[in-house]
């Protein structure tokens, strides 16, 4: 089990204070309910390969590791799509991308359930 492995690992390495912070941040966001269709959507997409296109025209392909409520994204096993033109990240294999610099995310076709998205969007539209 992945969960139990993480747990054991956590007890061995002590508390991660950064997780404590994020936990508090999450509690705060519960008091201030926000609509979060795409946050939920991207959480379900964790583990799949995506291509993130940035507003500086860089396109990075990688496995989606995690996402937060700002739609900041962490990718693993990354490679820049046009490495000859953009050799700036040749020695980077994991990276954090700030949500605000994302232009597009190319999604894997098997990661899009059209009917589910329509329902979630209508629900979100009613709530907002």
């Amino acid at each position: 089990m992945v969960g139990s492995y993480i747990n054991t690992h956590k007890f061995l390495s002590g508390f991660s204070s950064s997780s404590l912070y994020l936990f508090i941040a999450h509690l705060l966001s519960l008091n201030n309910p926000v609509l979060q269709l795409f946050f939920s959507y991207f959480k379900d997409l964790v583990g799949k390969e995506v291509t993130v296109e940035l507003k500086n025209d860089l396109a990075i392909r990688g496995i989606l590791h995690s996402v937060d409520q700002y739609l900041n994204i962490k990718l693993e096993h990354t490679r820049v799509v046009d490495q000859d033109k953009y050799p700036h990240m040749l020695s980077v294999r994991n990276c954090f991308i700030r949500g605000s610099v994302v232009r597009y995310v190319q999604l894997p076709p098997d990661g899009v359930d059209v009917d589910l998205l329509h329902d979630a969007t209508r629900r979100e539209a009613r709530g907002g």
Partner: peptide
């Protein structure tokens, strides 16, 4: 907390 640790990009 383990969940947050494992699933947030800032970590």
């Amino acid at each position: 907390m383990d969940v947050y640790c494992a699933s947030y990009p800032l970590d």
